[in-house]
């Protein structure tokens, strides 16, 4: 120990006091990320808001004449069927995901501990694979000469192929398929926390299975149910690939209409107005989510 311990003696004895004054200075690594974020996320959204109040000149280019006409057009009865279809399909998707997802989440939460993680990963993996490819798989299965019709006709169950592709049912199926993992995850988080002892207590007090479910599981799982429903509802409402590929031109939804306005008709002001209405709905829904489920950690 011949060397003097100069370095350790330079460390301030009361780190907690010096920390707050360091805080702002130490935050510099946040700056590049924040700048990137403001430039390529916040500013584009602000631009979109601006353009939604602009008009188009005779060549279809953006003319900076402020108008509310784009928002008036949003409420044109012409689009009501489309809005209704978007809303109904999103609500139905949410309902189907809940009915399918709850038993799955419950079974995972009550599985032996080492299985739980494997099962959760199994539920999550499809979500991280190409949504386009998974939607294409349904085209292969559902189309008139597809797997489903071919097999059922071969087995003599059908004489005529069923026209499922390019209908609302096909879009619903595709949406439920795509967003089911979003429902399972938050449900698993809440159900896993419900002690099985509570269930036993309910049975000891002569509750039937249904009674136990209704009085114990359902109330305790409520934040997860709300969270899961909103996590499915939001992307369903803005879905693009599914209605585009499985719905075709006949069953357009909000997402396909926005794409149509931007890339086909090139009416950017109206497209922006539509996008902003969608954004507003999403933000309201998400604010509700944050408020009502503040106990649940978000899972990526």
């Amino acid at each position: 120990m011949s060397q003097p311990l100069t370095k350790s003696s330079t460390i301030p004895p009361k780190r907690s006091v010096s920390k707050s004054s360091f805080s702002l200075w130490l935050s510099w690594p946040l700056v590049p990320a924040l700048v990137m974020f403001i430039v390529f996320f916040v500013i584009p959204l602000v631009m979109m808001l601006g353009i939604s109040f602009a008009s188009r000149d005779t060549y279809g280019r953006i003319a900076w004449l402020w108008t509310l006409s784009n928002y008036e057009r949003v409420f044109d009865p012409l689009y009501w069927t489309l809005y209704m279809r978007s809303a109904v399909l999103s609500v139905l998707t949410t309902g189907c995901c809940l009915v399918l997802g709850f038993p799955l989440a419950y079974a995972i939460a009550r599985a032996p501990a080492h299985f739980q993680r494997v099962l959760l990963v199994l539920v999550m993996i499809p979500f991280w694979t190409s949504f386009l490819v998974r939607t294409y798989a349904w085209i292969f299965i559902l189309r008139t000469e597809g797997l489903f019709n071919t097999i059922l006709i071969k087995w003599g169950i059908l004489t005529q192929p069923l026209e499922i592709l390019y209908t609302n049912s096909a879009v619903l199926l595709g949406l439920v398929y795509g967003y089911l993992p979003f429902m399972v995850l938050p449900l698993y988080v809440v159900i896993e926390r419900i002690s099985p002892v509570l269930e036993e207590a309910a049975y000891d007090l002569y509750a039937g299975k249904w009674m136990m479910f209704r009085r114990i599981i359902l109330p305790l799982a409520k934040p997860g149910i709300i969270g899961g429903c909103l996590l499915v509802f939001v992307p369903s409402l803005g879905a693009f690939i599914t209605p585009y590929l499985l719905g075709g031109g006949k069953t357009m939804m909000l997402g396909t209409l926005i794409q149509h306005e931007f890339l086909v008709i090139r009416d950017w002001p109206f497209g922006s107005a539509l996008s902003f209405i969608l954004m507003a709905i999403v933000l309201v829904v998400l604010a509700g989510l944050v408020k009502r489920t503040s106990g649940i950690a978000p899972v990526a």
Partner: peptide, 27 residues
């Protein structure tokens, strides 16, 4: 400050993808 940043930075994960697509296209 960091709490607010925290919330905003997560937005691309939750808003519909098509919103980001069209906003970036415009930009």
């Amino acid at each position: 400050g960091t709490r607010v940043v925290d919330g905003i930075v997560m937005l691309p994960l939750v808003i519909p993808e098509i919103m980001m697509g069209v906003a970036l296209l415009l930009f």
